[in-house]
Design a protein around this nucleic acid. Structure first.
Lengths: 134, 134
DNA sequence: GTTTCCGGTTTCCCCGCGGTAACTGGAGAA
DNA sequence: TTCTCCAGTTACCGCGGGGAAACCGGAAAC
């Protein structure tokens, strides 16, 4: 006899899984990082490029354009010379901040856990003396 | 004169951006969905496959294996016949649940917003009569 | 003994995403 | 005049992640 498919407990959860809805916004590379850094206030293109080590101008440009189209950020040209461009989170974009914070929170715990694991492995590799503080 | 790079407000935020730390876990396709559905309780392979429309067996298998290696989920073989396999969130995996919930929360708002926008566009397209209920 | 089911694994293929690097264009500095 | 800076854009290239589909092995049902 075939096993029963148990009634999905997620039925108690919302009918259509809205994870995808949000991941559309968080999907591209560096997207969460951009939101994270903009959550500190408006920021210029080149500032963001410096803020986020490893991101290329192309990807940053692409992501900002995408996110502007989706309504998560706003682009404002400041008439200085040379003209600078400021990006800021829109009201919609602000909605993501708690989610990003929750993600960051978990990131921390993960990091601590990984460090603990590494220490344990070092221990396992027959290094009985104390790990020197970095 | 070149524009000053404004002191990063994110400096008030944690020194190393931990977004990446967490996204490593949430990175693969469907990973957040898997956590979401497991947050309702343990679930078997084929149940998950049904729960998550569109996921392929290969990806589900890959993701589950990855997440098990990373310690986010636990795999338990139930000695029935045929043997069934249950997946459940580990303590570490549970840590992600608030983040996923935050994401889902935003997903909802996004959905509502998009529907409102569609309604508005329909309005704009000169459809003065009421939209028939589906 | 053949089919079904569970829980996958393996193979093949594709295309899309992201990295690299070069280029743009206007304004100011040197 | 040439250089640099800001804010990108464009062209090219590689690879790896994901989809589709076939395959697998043991057990039980038919």
């Amino acid at each position: 006899m075939s096993l029963k498919i148990r009634k999905n407990r997620a039925a108690a959860l919302p009918p259509t899984c809205p994870v995808g809805e949000c991941m559309v916004m968080l999907g591209g590379a560096w997207a969460p990082n951009i939101i994270w850094y903009l959550s500190g206030g408006p920021r210029r293109f080149s500032e963001l490029k410096i803020d986020i080590p490893g991101i290329s101008a192309k990807v940053l440009s692409t992501r900002l354009k995408e996110m502007e189209e989706k309504g998560a950020i706003e682009r404002r040209i400041v008439p200085t010379s040379p003209p600078s461009v400021e990006y800021r989170l829109s009201d919609l974009g602000e909605e993501f901040v708690p989610a990003i914070h929750a993600i960051v929170e978990v990131g921390y715990k993960l990091k601590l856990r990984r460090e603990a694991k590494l220490a344990e492995e070092a221990d396992w590799q027959n290094v009985p003396q104390a790990v020197p503080a970095l």
